[in-house]
Nucleic acid binder design. Structure first.
Length: 495
DNA sequence: CACCGCCGTT
């Protein structure tokens, strides 16, 4: 049995080992009937869906005997995250399944995917269906929807949606109020959030979290003085700031480059006997580090250990990142090895930071080694960000073929490229412009649109013009034709 | 997916 005082990072690593050991157990106890899949079913399903074309997909799925359950369906949807149309098709296929009914979480995932493609028609159809099935919509559903509207530049619409939630069978409360404030703030629509806050803080009985959200918003747009005002207001209304409030302000000072103020604030926190936590220290390490104050960053790191506050993986990540940027990758790797020695399990952030650092110094060889290591030693599959870093640096070094190989590797590892991946490759193909490059760019463009991404107008026009100028009229027409079939295309793509 | 820390520059 684990003792109560077991450090969290050790628990985590034990948990990771435990989970990987009981994986095989699960398959023994619950074998999936007609599909003898030694590996995770979710990977197998996602692979099957990605490999079959749109027409034959229903038939293909019909022939299988997967035992659908919400957990499996959610995982499959996650795998299809960067292939919206397939995700939607899969979800809709199961809606017609004779016995299976979707869980609330699967609806939420699918709504998120549809909203990201700006397919609002599907979004609201799904909301209505959710309601009909009595599985929502929940406050979480509305968090997702409003976030996507704000991200698409429709903040006003998002607020209206929040105000009319109850008409969709989901009542507003303090939690959902805080959610919409946070959504607006995180998208830098802080003025709007603050106005909404002032109008409704009475009705929803704004709490400390509401104030923290607004204060954080001001900090995000580098208006720390406004954040301080919010804190004052908070006190005036009888709500005492929390440690989170102080951590928000501390980060705010670093954002505006006010190192002295940050240091003074930190000292004040200590003097007032706030129980300074790992977040406070991580903020300090990162803040000083990005300003190039590596000595101070290290000092704070050592200090936290002395004061008995255990660094987290995030703290190490902060230190490693700033060392990569402002010191040297070699020193960063020393810290990396140290954290491993102490029993921490590096995560994808850790690895991506190191890999980026190595790429930046031109050491692609070692970068690749870390990519292998993350998987083999820490059961941490390279994710799309990992691949994007590698692809970017390969292409920047003029090795576009290697970049395209890496894209191929992603496909084999069932890691789907995202918008960044496509943008990186297409724009680098345009920098090189070797014969054939434009056709490759055209193919990538077609593929990304197929997968529900909206290329920027600039990208789209550049590729089409490029093809037209190099005598690829037929291919240009093909791109246009194939896109006009898919119905849901943004206005600028319709010509 | 109700608040704070760790992958960013198209």
């Amino acid at each position: 049995m684990l003792k109560l005082g077991t450090p969290f990072h050790l628990l985590h690593s034990l948990k990771q080992r435990f989970l990987s050991s009981c994986h095989s157990l699960t398959t023994i106890i619950q074998p999936s009937p007609a599909t003898p899949l030694p590996v995770e079913e979710d990977f197998a399903v996602a692979k099957l869906i990605l490999e079959s074309d749109t027409q034959s997909l229903p038939e293909t799925l019909q022939r299988t005997t997967f035992q659908w359950n919400p957990n499996l369906v959610d995982k499959v949807l996650k795998h299809l995250w960067n292939h919206g149309p397939k995700a939607l098709q899969f979800f809709k296929y199961l809606e017609r399944h004779p016995t299976y009914t979707h869980a609330s979480s699967s609806f939420d995932y699918t709504i998120d995917i549809a909203a990201r493609m700006r397919d609002y028609k599907s979004v609201w159809t799904l909301v209505a269906r959710m309601r009909a099935c009595h599985v929502g919509p929940s406050p979480r559903t509305f968090a997702i929807i409003t976030e996507r509207y704000v991200a698409a530049g429709k903040a006003d619409r998002a607020v209206k949606i929040f105000l009319s939630m109850h008409k969709h069978g989901c009542r507003q409360d303090l939690n959902s109020f805080n959610t919409i404030l946070d959504v607006l703030c995180k998208s830098k629509r802080v003025e709007m959030a603050y106005n909404l806050f002032k109008v409704f803080r009475g009705r929803f009985k704004a709490d400390r979290i509401s104030y923290n959200i607004i204060a954080n918003g001001w900090c995000l747009i580098k208006r720390t003085p406004k954040a301080l005002e919010v804190m004052k207001e908070m006190v005036e209304r009888g709500l005492s700031p929390t440690l989170t409030t102080y951590n928000i302000l501390l980060k705010g000072y670093f954002r505006t480059g006010q190192l002295k103020e940050a240091w003074d604030f930190f000292s004040e926190m200590k003097k007032r006997k706030c129980d300074i936590d790992v977040v406070t220290y991580t903020t300090m390490v990162h803040g000083f580090g990005v300003s190039g104050e590596i000595q101070k960053a290290r000092k704070v790191f050592d200090q936290m250990v002395r004061e008995g506050v255990l660094p987290s993986v995030a703290t190490y990540n902060a230190l490693i990142q700033v060392l990569c940027k402002k010191d040297s990758v070699d020193n960063a790797i020393l810290v990396f090895e140290e954290m491993v020695r102490k029993g921490y399990v590096p995560n994808s952030v850790t690895y991506n930071v190191i890999i980026r650092g190595l790429c930046h110094t031109g050491d692609m060889q070692r970068a690749m080694e870390f990519m292998v290591r993350m998987e083999e030693e820490d059961d941490c599959q390279p994710n799309v960000q990992t691949y994007n870093v590698i692809i970017r640096y390969l292409c920047d070094a003029g090795e576009i073929e290697k970049g395209l190989d890496m894209l191929e590797k992603m496909r084999n590892r069932s890691c789907l490229p995202n918008l960044d991946t496509y943008n990186i490759l297409i724009s680098d193909l345009f920098v090189r412009k070797k014969s054939g490059d434009l056709v490759v760019a055209g193919k990538l463009l077609m593929e990304m649109i197929d997968r529900g991404f909206l290329p920027r107008k600039f990208t789209f026009n550049r590729v089409l013009n490029g093809l037209l100028l190099t005598g690829n009229q037929d291919f240009a027409k093909e791109i246009l034709r194939s896109q006009s079939r898919c119905g849901r295309i943004p206005r600028h793509l319709k010509i």
